[in-house]
């Protein structure tokens, strides 16, 4: 057999190993380039998806904000107790009728508190969540605050000034924030904010209770 033919067979055999090797490498490494699309089908349609771009608008957003002053049906916000925590010109001291105080509501409040509030306020509400700890570490850095960090110790919900607040005021703090705390009105739906406010009351009761407030059949477990 001529040398040429032998070499051709050997080389094509070796070349055949290349594609699997390349594929194995592609599989094992992350790639910043958009995925290769072999068949486009109708994967990319001329329509706008949530949070997609539309160059027609100056801000580039396909989702348009409501026109200033527009009022959607059912969004008059006339019920100040439900939307603002204000009843009769004062902070409401009771839950609004739309959100009755039930065990489910308190459990919902606990779950929501643990998502949105614990980073700063901690699971017990005492104000020493992990973000608070980290921020204090950044501020008290020996060579000065890291990246200009400023921080005021997160408030404990067991603070005397918070315990005396009517629930409507706590709801308002969650909605609009206070001092250095940002408002969560756009991040948490109104019903969940009431659930959190109710759970703050639960934390206050649980962390500041006396033994005689514990049901008699549970006292042995203390």
């Amino acid at each position: 057999m001529p040398r040429l033919i032998v070499y051709a067979i050997l080389i094509s055999g070796l070349l055949a190993l290349l594609p699997p090797a390349i594929i194995a490498r592609v599989r094992a490494t992350p790639d910043p380039n958009p995925p290769v699309h072999i068949f486009h089908d109708m994967d990319f349609q001329t329509k706008y998806l949530p949070q997609s771009e539309n160059a027609q608008y100056a801000d580039g957003r396909a989702q348009r904000p409501p026109v200033l002053g527009a009022v959607a049906r059912g969004e008059t916000y006339a019920d100040t107790h439900y939307y603002d925590g204000v009843s009769g010109g004062q902070w409401a001291s009771a839950m609004p009728t739309q959100v009755p105080l039930t065990m489910e509501l308190l459990q919902r409040g606990e779950a929501r508190f643990n998502i949105y509030c614990t980073p700063c306020h901690g699971y017990d509400g005492a104000g020493n969540g992990i973000v608070n700890q980290r921020a204090i570490a950044l501020v008290s850095n020996a060579a000065g605050p890291v990246n200009g960090t400023v921080w005021v110790q997160a408030k404990s919900v067991h603070d005397e000034t918070v315990i005396v607040q009517p629930i409507g005021q706590i709801f308002n703090t969650i909605t609009h924030g206070v001092r250095n705390m940002a408002g969560y009105g756009s991040q948490i739906p109104v019903e969940d904010r009431w659930a959190i406010a109710a759970y703050v009351r639960v934390l206050q009761r649980s962390q500041n209770a006396t033994p005689d407030q514990v049901p008699a059949d549970r006292r042995a477990g203390l």
């Binding site: 980073p119 890291v146 400023v150 921080w151 940002a182």
Partner: peptide, 12 residues
């Protein structure tokens, strides 16, 4: 806004 809940103060 969600980023700035914290980053108005931390690593500002």
């Amino acid at each position: 806004q969600t980023c700035m809940n914290c980053h108005t103060q931390i690593h500002r």
